[in-house]
Design a protein around this nucleic acid. Structure first.
Length: 192
DNA sequence: AGCCGGATCCGCT
DNA sequence: GCGGATCCGGCTT
């Protein structure tokens, strides 16, 4: 199931369901990170305390803290010892929408409830404490689609600057035309 | 021991 | 469309 490389697994997650804490999400946008060979990946410089989950068992949830205020969730794909993972970037809330609205107090429309990796985590109630939990048996569960989605689109990864960004790694995958797909934004150029 | 910069979001223009 | 918020991990001194 999840034993392959992130690039192979990522498009096959689209249309899949993420269940957890009273909310069900249909995944519409993901991003692949290949591991130690990938300059955009947290695992690029080898295992560290933060990334140990990425180097562990496939099917685990890797959650990290970003920009001082957000958390993002990834699915670990590769066999133990390797470190490829798929970032869950956006989805459509298809169950428990009232609960998702309560968690996402700043969201102005249902379309935006889980449109973005940090928003997705808030809507699902995912926190850093969920890092390392098994997506087959833990509090957050992943259900792959019965049939691989057709017509998947791909392009540059969002927000990845430097060598790992741009056209060299077109590893962002989404369901074309789906309104919950987050608007693309190139890596921010930092002030000064 | 300290600094730099980030797999982002939101509000204002 | 843009810039500020906000803090931790990882690398440098």
């Amino acid at each position: 199931m999840l034993g392959g490389s992130a690039v192979d697994v990522a498009p096959r997650l689209l249309g899949g369901l993420l269940h957890g804490r009273g909310v069900t999400l249909r995944l519409t946008e993901v991003e692949a990170y290949a591991g130690e060979s990938d300059p955009g990946s947290h695992a690029f410089r080898g295992p560290t305390p933060r990334t140990r989950i990425m180097f562990g068992r496939p099917g685990a949830l890797y959650v990290y803290f970003s920009y001082g205020m957000h958390v993002c969730a990834n699915v670990v794909c590769s066999p133990e010892g390797e470190a490829s993972a798929v970032l869950l970037r956006a989805g459509e809330v298809v169950g428990g929408i009232e609960l998702a609205r309560q968690r996402r107090t700043t969201s102005s429309s249902d379309r935006d409830l889980a449109s973005g990796p940090a928003r997705l985590c808030v809507a699902m109630g995912i926190t850093l404490a969920d890092g390392g939990t098994d997506l087959a048996s833990g509090p957050i569960r992943l259900e792959l689609p019965a049939h691989p989605p057709s017509g998947v689109a791909n392009g540059p990864r969002t927000g990845v600057s430097g060598v790992g960004g741009g056209a060299a790694y077109p590893w962002r995958f989404w369901i074309p035309g789906d309104p919950t797909v987050s608007t693309y934004r190139a890596a921010a150029t930092r002030r000064r």
